[in-house]
């Protein structure tokens, strides 16, 4: 009995360490964002301090407000997500269910495009956007973001669509729904969950993207990730303010991540089974 108790205790301790290692840096960031700059640099570090929202006020409404950057991120990510889903769902349906000519190679092609490392593509993207004058524009960024969102979204949707029983579709066809209405009224309502999860993942990936944003963006279109990065490289770093900005930038992905929590393993492995993630 006592050996058992000891083992349980050890397990618990191990789990707590684990929890701490993953959660602590984020909690530490949260604490830092609520400190004054003086408290941040205090040694030994203060665990008890007077929390302040001044950093948040400053990064949102101060001279170097990140609100325009949040807006840029939202526009790029939002439109990318919508366009991606509009293109990916029909394509996934064709791959999952229909007699698409060259289906196997089509599927493999989508998969292969997902494996290209972004650094490999950034040079042609830069040169082309420069030539057509789309550097630092929303349309340029969104066009490029589509290229890495689409393959992932297509494969994730294929895996959800494959789970819909084929007979359901056949019943709808016999019920005179025709192909388009079968897709809209019978198939899609059954993969609502999958569509929601895919949308969340596409949004997450686009929101977190950095390389394309820093190279292809500029003064007009600067996403929040790029703005934060400039924070540390340009000014003498103000830790607390940076932490506050990071907290704001992280909030959407953490909320979405928690919402999609149950599906995250599936979402990540679909990318894995059928190819590679692209960050």
């Amino acid at each position: 009995m006592s050996r058992r108790a000891l083992r349980a205790l050890l397990l618990l301790a191990g789990a707590s360490v684990l929890l701490a290692v993953w959660a602590f840096p984020i909690l530490w960031g949260l604490l830092t964002s609520l400190k004054t700059e003086r408290d941040v640099l205090a040694y030994p570090p203060k665990l008890i301090f007077e929390p302040t929202l001044a950093n948040y006020r400053e990064v949102l409404f101060g001279s170097a407000s990140i609100l325009p950057n949040l807006w840029s991120s939202l526009v790029v990510t939002g439109i990318t997500t919508i366009l991606t889903m509009l293109l990916a769902v029909p394509a996934a349906y064709a791959l999952a269910r229909l007699d698409l000519p060259g289906k196997r190679s089509g599927g493999f092609y989508v998969l292969a495009t997902q494996m290209l490392p972004p650094v490999g593509l950034i040079i042609p993207y830069f040169l082309v956007l420069q030539r057509v004058g789309w550097l630092d524009t929303y349309q340029g960024m969104i066009a490029i973001y589509l290229t890495f969102s689409l393959p992932f979204a297509i494969w994730l949707m294929v895996s959800y669509l494959e789970d819909v029983p084929r007979e359901m579709e056949e019943a709808a066809l016999l019920d005179r729904a025709g192909r388009i209405r079968t897709l809209l009224y019978v198939i899609l309502p059954q993969v609502r969950g999958g569509i929601a999860v895919t949308t969340i993942f596409v949004f997450l990936n686009a929101w977190n993207e950095f390389l394309f944003a820093v190279v292809l963006g500029g003064n007009r279109v600067r996403t929040v990730n790029v703005a934060m990065f400039n924070f540390i490289s340009v000014e003498q770093t103000l830790w607390a303010r940076l932490a506050a900005a990071a907290m704001i930038a992280m909030a959407p992905v953490i909320i979405l991540g928690l919402l999609a929590q149950r599906h995250i393993v599936k979402g990540l492995t679909v990318g894995a089974v059928k190819g590679g993630g692209r960050r």
């Binding site: 029983p165 007979e167 056949e170 019943a171 709808a172 019920d175 309502p189 059954q190």
Partner: peptide, 19 residues
Amino acid sequence: EPGERDVAMVFQSYALYPH
């Protein structure tokens, strides 16, 4: 097309629309 043949079918799995 199946929808234009004026036939109705009952499937082994019933294939009811769950939503």
